[in-house]
């Protein structure tokens, strides 16, 4: 397992297949919490944090609980129908745990992005990243899975921060009335996604 593979996975998920702009995950916070750069950055940090932990924990759920039990009864996939329920429960409880932990041990960090934590449970970037880790052939070992999750989180942070930067400027421009709010945001996102397609091909 070379470092090159890890770099490849990281670049692929952070830029080329950016969870938000190419994978359409986490669109709700991407549109909702991108009015100010500092808010967007805080949200990005919170997501990166939770996504990395959840990615690792759900990997462990599949490879250390569901598969061994399945193997024990003779069919490795026997319990896979519990995956989705297990994943969402893990994410929800991870979010709660992280929130309580930060509040107790890192109060400054908690005040910085603690407010975003409850919103994250229904952020599809988290569940999406966990599902992709489960599906993709290259993330079947723990280290790759962790790198994938971390890269996915950073990609989300990058996308939402850029978006917020642009929106801070859009506020001063003369947007047609019917496009104000969601309309113009989506169009900006489209152009941003167009820019990100320029990253395709750097995976090699």
């Amino acid at each position: 397992m070379s470092i090159g593979v890890l770099v490849g996975i990281f670049l692929s998920v952070a830029l080329v297949n950016n969870l938000v702009l190419a994978g359409f995950l986490g669109i709700c916070p991407f549109l909702g919490v991108s009015r100010k750069v500092d808010m967007a950055f805080g949200m990005g940090c919170a997501v990166t944090f939770v996504i990395t932990i959840s990615g690792v924990v759900t990997w462990l759920i599949v490879h250390a609980i569901l598969t061994p039990i399945g193997n024990a009864i003779g069919n490795p996939g026997a319990l896979y129908f519990l995956k989705y329920v297990a994943f969402i429960m893990v994410i929800a409880s991870m979010v709660q745990l992280v929130e309580m932990y930060l509040k107790k041990f890192f109060p400054p960090l908690y005040t910085a992005f603690g407010v975003f934590l409850p919103l994250i449970t229904t952020n599809c970037a988290i569940l999406g990243a966990c599902l992709y880790i489960d599906m993709k052939p290259e993330t079947q070992n723990l280290l790759n899975a962790a790198v994938y999750a971390f890269g996915g989180g950073l990609g989300f942070m990058l996308a939402i921060t850029i978006m917020a930067g642009i929106r801070e400027h859009v506020r001063f421009s003369d947007v047609p009335k019917c496009l104000q709010g969601a309309g113009i945001t989506l169009l900006v996102a489209g152009i941003l996604a167009l820019a990100f397609t320029g990253f395709t091909g750097i995976g090699k």
Partner: peptide, 11 residues
Amino acid sequence: AVGTGFVDKIR
């Protein structure tokens, strides 16, 4: 076989 493609892995 699985390997790198232009956008994502190709199988």
